[in-house]
Design a protein around this nucleic acid. Structure first.
Lengths: 198, 198
DNA sequence: CGAACACTTGATCGATCACTCAAGAAAGGA
DNA sequence: TCCTTTCTTGAGTGATCGATCAAGTGTTCG
C-alpha cells in the first residue's frame, strides 16, 4: 500500500557524495543538491533529515570505500608492506577526471570544520582514527611476517603513513602540479617497501 | 588636512589573518570580521575593498611569515639539510594555543576553493609554488655542499617535502591526535637528515 | 470506485549573507 | 572660526541560506 519513492536511495547518495566531495560541505548549497539529485527540498528533507545528516551519510560511504580499496590492495599482494605500497601507488594514479576531487574528502572536511565539537568534526576524526588503525593492523602483520625490523612501532608507522597520504592528496588538489602526483606516490611507496631492509 | 584612520592597518590585518586562518574563508562572515577588527562594514570596505581582497592580503602575510620562518631555520643551522630538518621540527613543536590553527592556511584555502579559476585559488597555488621553490633551493644547496648523493633530484625532494608538510599540518588539525604531531615531525626531520647517508 | 497512505512539489519562512551609502564625526588649513 | 577633506557609522540593499509545510500526486487495498 502507498506510493514508492521515485528515486534510488543509493544512487542519490552517490550523487550527493560526489557533489560534497568536490565542493565541500559549506560551499554546497541546497540549490546545488536539488539540481544534482533532481529532488525538491521537501523530498530531500523527508529522506535525509538535514543537510548535515545527508553529508554524514556521504562521509560514511567515503569511509567504507576507502577501507575497501585498502583491503583490495592488501589481498592483491603477497606481503603486507607490498599491499600498503600498492594502495599508495593506486592513490597516485587516480586521474583527475575519474573522481570528484583528487583531495581526500576527510581532510577537506577536517579543515573546513570548526574546532569546537560539531557532529561532522567528530565523525571525521573517528573515521580517520579507523583508517589509521587499519594501517596499524597492516604494519603489525608486516612485523609478524618478519618484514619489519624489531623495535619499529606499527602505530607510529601508521600515523606517519596517514599523514603522508593526507599530504599526497592535498598536494594532488593543486591544479598546477598534476604531473608530479604519481611520482610523489611512487616515492612514498618506495619508502614503505624500504622499511623491510633497515 | 583631514581625519586620520582610527586603527593601525597592520594590526587589523593581523587580526583578520588570525580569524581567517582559524575559521577559513567561507566560514568567516562579515559579522565575525566586524567583531574581530572592531570595525564597521563601511570602514572595512573602504580599507580593503572586499572580503576576498582582505583575505588575499592575509594570505600574503602568511606567505611572508612562512618564508621568514624557513629562512631563520636555515641560517640557524650549519648545513642546508639540518636547516630543513629544523624547520620541520619547529612546525611539529607549535602549540595549539599559540596559533590560530595548527593546519596550514594555504592547504585550508586550497581545499575549500573551487577548482575553476578563482582569484584565491590561483594565489594559493602561486604561494605554494614559491615555497616549494624555496625548498628546492635548499636541497640544491645541500647538493652543492656534498650532502646529497649524486643523482638525487632537488625538485623532486622539494615536492616530497612540501607534501609531507601538508600532511603533517593537516594531521595536526586532528583534535584527537595532538600528542602524535611532534613525534611525526621528528620522523620527517630524521628522514631529511638521513638523505645525507644514502 | 474511493479511502488510506506515502511521497513529491514548490511557495514560503526567518535568518544571514556580502555589500552599499547617506549622514555624522574628527582633524588640518585658512 | 569655519570650510574642506577623510574616515566612521549603522541602517538598509537584494540575494541566498537551510529548512518547513500545506497541497497535490501516485499507488495499493478493501
Amino acid at each position: 500500500m502507498a506510493r514508492r519513492a521515485g528515486y534510488d536511495r543509493d544512487e542519490v547518495l552517490a550523487r550527493a557524495q560526489a557533489l560534497f566531495w568536490r565542493k565541500g560541505y559549506h560551499t554546497t548549497s541546497l540549490k546545488d543538491l536539488e539540481a544534482a539529485l533532481n529532488m525538491r527540498p521537501g523530498s530531500i528533507y523527508a529522506a535525509f533529515g538535514s543537510k548535515e545528516a545527508l553529508f554524514a551519510e556521504t562521509l560514511h560511504i567515503y569511509a567504507r570505500r576507502s577501507r575497501e580499496q585498502l583491503r583490495q590492495a592488501r589481498v592483491a599482494k603477497a606481503s603486507p608492506l607490498a599491499g600498503l605500497a600498492a594502495y599508495v601507488r593506486a592513490l597516485g594514479c587516480i586521474q583527475a577526471d575519474a573522481v570528484p576531487s583528487r583531495a581526500c574528502m576527510l581532510v577537506k572536511t577536517l579543515l573546513e570544520t570548526p574546532d569546537d565539537d560539531t557532529v561532522l568534526r567528530r565523525l571525521t576524526e573517528e573515521i580517520m582514527e579507523g583508517m589509521e588503525a587499519e594501517f596499524a593492523t597492516a604494519f603489525r602483520a608486516a612485523q609478524t611476517a618478519g618484514e619489519l625490523p624489531d623495535g619499529t612501532d606499527p602505530e607510529r608507522l601508521a600515523c606517519r603513513l596517514q599523514a603522508e597520504i593526507f599530504g599526497l592528496r592535498a598536494y594532488a588538489q593543486r591544479s598546477d602540479a598534476q604531473d608530479k602526483v604519481a611520482r610523489l606516490a611512487e616515492d612514498i611507496a618506495r619508502d614503505i617497501e624500504r622499511l623491510a631492509d633497515r
